[in-house]
């Protein structure tokens, strides 16, 4: 991708170095608005996870579903924290073996969802939008549909 862009720029005879530096400069302006949003999100998500609330919340579902606790935690954690869900995925691989059914299911779930809260907070925060209307609701709906589809597919293909 980088190669194509640079070659195209070369063919169009623009000042590549100048253009690159000008573009990079914008990162500082962006950084100023991104950092406070990042800090705020990480603060509240960490407090929620470390207080043990999430574990308790997840344990509510266990009796009704035939899925291991780590997998439910993964589903609940993925939309709010990328690093926490990656850590959970590592735990699942270690515990059940990377090629086991639960690991495959966990991989599929990890692949089909995004860190929704983080994206919404960052994207809207960076341009100073106060009212995000139905952004979070629709995105979480998308995650839900994605997770459901991958669970069904996993049972059909690997189960």
């Amino acid at each position: 991708m980088v190669f194509i862009i640079v070659i195209y720029g070369l063919l169009k005879k623009i000042d590549l170095y100048e253009a690159f530096v000008e573009g990079s400069k914008e990162a500082f302006k962006m950084g100023f608005t991104i950092f406070p949003n990042l800090l705020a999100m990480i603060l509240s998500v960490n407090v929620l996870i470390n207080s043990g609330f999430l574990k308790w919340f997840v344990s509510l579902f266990i009796s009704n579903l035939k899925l291991p606790i780590e997998l439910i935690s993964l589903i609940v954690t993925k939309p709010i924290s990328g690093s926490a869900s990656l850590a959970l995925l590592n735990t699942i691989y270690n515990k059940y073996g990377v090629d086991s059914f639960f690991s495959l299911l966990a991989s599929a779930i990890q692949g089909c969802t995004d860190t929704t809260f983080y994206v919404i907070a960052l994207y809207y925060g960076s341009i100073g939008i106060k009212k995000t209307r139905y952004a979070l609701a629709t995105s979480l709906f998308g995650d839900f549909v994605g997770i459901l589809t991958s669970i069904i597919l996993c049972y059909m293909l690997f189960g």
Binding site: I5, A19, F20, V21, L38
Partner: peptide, 24 residues
């Protein structure tokens, strides 16, 4: 986290600017 993503953002914004100015 910021230190991890900031260089990536700076790098891609630079490359993106080349793509913008060249008309790509």
């Amino acid at each position: 986290v910021f230190i991890q993503i900031f260089p990536v953002i700076a790098l891609w914004l630079g490359i993106m600017n080349i793509a913008t100015l060249s008309g790509l």
